[in-house]
Design a protein around this nucleic acid. Structure first.
Lengths: 251, 251
DNA sequence: CAGTGGTCTAGACCACGCT
DNA sequence: GCGTGGTCTAGACCACTGG
């Protein structure tokens, strides 16, 4: 007699709603029926409905909030062009590559910068070829687009290179050709490592990341003319707001 | 006389366990106490503990399974070098760039290939500059490492280019310099777009992706000497198994 | 203030993996 | 068979948002 549907009750509810979203019956921004109503309609308890909604939220399809109800999540992503060196400035000057890229897409960028001197984490020390008792200058940037926090971008420089230079200025400095080049250390090679993972609690709160949103941890190591590492930049990139872009040309 | 801890009960349980993991008291592979035991220890109900464990699972910290108990998740990632063109073969020949990269890291790669002719999805049509009534040849590959499914990599070619060539062979073909070059269409430029998101239900089941694991959708478009697109490759990359790597050299 | 989602409990039964 | 996690219910109260 049973219908022999192997899916759990909550999974059927989730599948129903997911199908409505994929089909376009529910569009970005549309409100979802209240939990109690969904429970009545499917003949299940409210907790079961909540499990279904939880699942869809984890898939990045829904947003929720106390008192506000649930809505279908929208995603428009900003393109982040990563294959241009700082030395290949396409713009007049002034702003850095990131700001220019954002402005090109009709959005309004700005960044907050703080500078500190610290001991390197193992991850940074390894990439800069430093010991634990060496020091690094850390430039921590929070990058905003249209006044929403968009990225955490922390740059690490060996203290021996950064001491007494522009790099110690706790503000948004930029010079044509790149800061490192301007102080005598041009970068000739870059290695990017991209890791995909869920955000830590701290990252979630700093960036206002919704549940069900993964991040990319983008680690860029820059090397100088003598082949030694000059800089490590670690950027935390919320997945729902970005597309990372690389353009590669045959030589 | 409340303790005035603003955190919910489940959040305290989660924070406790997360701290144990970060501190190293619980290492990869270690079992977590059973739900009932955690409930008793913290003086909360089993459902509350389950909510905490659910959260940590979504953060990618735990694995679970019926009857098996829960364990701390480990993560060793394979490096995937993406900045080398097919024309820049470093290896004797035979295998493709991906297989070589995997073998270099002491692992054992293989791939299953199927070929079909189909109408392009809008995403593919846009990048190949095709209309909806044009046809594409699709090479679908499931890539395995040590017999575990690792990536879904689908390549799309305009039917006009692929017809009657090696590209129609439903097996793991590879030639020095790349297949496209061997049939008269060398790629001179590549554009990669990387999107970070949660997997669809289908991707999760095909790749055996655990809850709380994001994916990268890597879209590589290859252009020929006349500047026209030749190929789109869409790869679904489980985040817990990969690090994407790009090396960029100054010109 | 009404309605929403968020938290929490107590208890039940089921499905799976192991020994 | 026993212990584990997975599913599900019914009911309660709280916290926030909006009219």
């Amino acid at each position: 007699m049973g219908t022999a549907d192997p899916r759990a009750l909550w999974e059927r509810v989730a599948d129903d709603l997911r199908a409505e979203i994929n089909r376009g019956d529910l569009k970005a921004g549309d409100p979802i029926s209240p939990e109690q109503e969904l429970a009545d309609r499917h003949g299940v308890s409210r907790q079961t409905v909540r499990q279904a909604l939880q699942q869809l939220t984890n898939e990045g399809l829904l947003l929720s909030g106390r008192g506000r109800g649930r809505t279908v999540r929208s995603q428009t992503r900003l393109h982040w062009q990563l294959s241009h060196f700082e030395t290949q400035e396409r713009h007049s000057a002034e702003a850095d590559a990131w700001s220019n890229g954002v402005a090109d897409q009709g959005r309004n960028p700005h960044q907050d910068v703080t500078v500190e001197i610290n001991v390197p984490t193992p991850k940074v020390a390894e990439r800069l070829g430093l010991n634990q008792d060496d020091l690094v200058v850390v430039r921590r940037r929070v990058r905003y687009v249209d006044d929403q926090a968009f990225q955490l971008a922390d740059s690490y420089f060996p203290e021996s290179i950064a001491r007494g230079t522009l790099l110690m200025q706790p503000r948004d400095v930029s010079v044509p050709g790149g800061i490192l080049a301007s102080i005598g250390y041009p970068q000739i090679k870059i290695v990017d490592e991209i890791e995909i993972r869920m955000p830590t609690k701290e990252e979630s709160s700093k960036l206002g990341i919704a549940a069900g949103t993964p991040v990319a941890e983008h680690v860029r190591t820059g090397y100088g003319e003598d082949g030694k590492p000059l800089r490590v930049m670690i950027t935390i990139v919320p997945g729902d707001r970005h597309v990372l872009v690389y353009e590669l040309e045959a030589q």
